[in-house]
Deep mutational scan, measured.
Amino acid sequence: TTTITTTNEEDARRIATEWKNKGYTVHVEKRGTTFRIEVR
Rank of each mutant, 00 (worst) to 15 (best):
T1P: 10
K20H: 10
H27Y: 12
V39D: 00
T17V: 09
R14L: 08
T25F: 12
E29A: 08
A12C: 06
K30R: 11
V28R: 01
T3H: 09
A16W: 06
V26C: 00
T33Y: 09
T25Y: 12
A12H: 02
N21P: 00
G32K: 04
Y24I: 02
V28Q: 03
E38M: 12
N21I: 09
T6W: 02
E9G: 07
E9P: 09
R36A: 11
T7G: 09
N21C: 06
T2Y: 15
D11G: 04
T2G: 06
G32F: 04
I15L: 07
W19C: 02
T7W: 10
H27W: 12
I4W: 12
A12S: 05
E9M: 08
R14T: 07
E10N: 09
T2S: 08
I4L: 09
V39W: 04
V26R: 00
E38H: 14
T33A: 12
T34M: 13
T7F: 11
D11W: 09
I37H: 00
E10L: 09
R31I: 15
T1Q: 10
R13K: 12
E38N: 08
R14Y: 05
Y24E: 01
V28G: 01
T6D: 02
E29W: 11
T33F: 10
E10K: 09
T33H: 13
Y24T: 01
R36I: 15
I37V: 10
V39Q: 02
K22Q: 08
I4V: 07
T6N: 02
T6M: 06
T5I: 15
T1R: 06
Y24V: 02
A12F: 03
T5L: 13
R31N: 13
T33G: 13
V39Y: 04
K22M: 10
K30F: 09
F35G: 01
V28C: 05
F35R: 01
R36G: 03
T3L: 14
W19K: 02
N8T: 09
R40S: 15
A16R: 03
A16Q: 05
K30Y: 08
G32W: 03
R36W: 15
T25I: 14
T2P: 06
I15M: 05
I37Y: 00
K20S: 11
E10S: 09
T3W: 14
V39H: 01
N21G: 07
F35D: 01
T2F: 15
T25P: 04
E18R: 07
T33E: 15
A16M: 09
G23P: 00
R14F: 06
Y24F: 11
K20N: 06
E18L: 12
V39C: 05
H27D: 06
H27G: 04
R40F: 14
T25K: 10
Y24A: 04
N8P: 01
D11C: 09
T34F: 12
I15K: 03
I15V: 07
T25N: 10
R40K: 13
I15T: 04
V28I: 13
N21S: 11
R40I: 14
G32Q: 04
I15R: 02
T7M: 10
T5R: 06
N8D: 11
T5D: 07
R14V: 06
E9V: 09
G32C: 04
F35E: 01
I37E: 01
T5W: 15
N21D: 11
R40N: 10
K22V: 04
G23Y: 02
R13N: 13
Y24L: 04
G23N: 03
V26M: 01
I37T: 01
I37W: 00
E18M: 12
A12D: 00
I4M: 08
T34K: 09
T6G: 02
G23Q: 02
R40P: 04
A16P: 00
T3F: 14
T17F: 10
K22C: 05
W19P: 00
E29V: 12
T6P: 01
T17E: 14
T5G: 03
F35Y: 14
I4Q: 04
I4N: 02
T3S: 08
H27E: 08
R13E: 12
G32T: 03
T1S: 11
R14P: 00
E9F: 11
V39L: 08
V26P: 02
I4T: 03
E29D: 07
D11T: 10
H27S: 12
G32V: 03
A16K: 03
A12I: 03
E9A: 11
H27F: 12
E18I: 11
E9L: 10
F35A: 01
T2V: 14
H27T: 14
I4R: 03
R13V: 13
T6E: 04
K20V: 12
K30G: 04
T34E: 14
T34I: 14
N21W: 05
A16F: 07
T6R: 03
E38S: 12
A12R: 01
N21R: 11
K22L: 11
R36T: 15
R31Q: 14
T17D: 13
I15Q: 04
K30E: 06
I4H: 06
R13I: 14
R36H: 15
E38L: 13
R36N: 11
H27A: 08
A12W: 03
G23L: 02
T3D: 04
R13D: 10
E18K: 08
T33D: 15
T6F: 05
A16Y: 08
N8K: 06
T1L: 14
K22Y: 05
T17G: 09
T33C: 08
Y24G: 02
I37D: 01
H27K: 11
T17Y: 10
E10P: 05
T2D: 05
T6C: 06
R36S: 11
E38K: 08
T2R: 13
T3P: 04
R40T: 15
E10V: 09
E10H: 09
T25E: 13
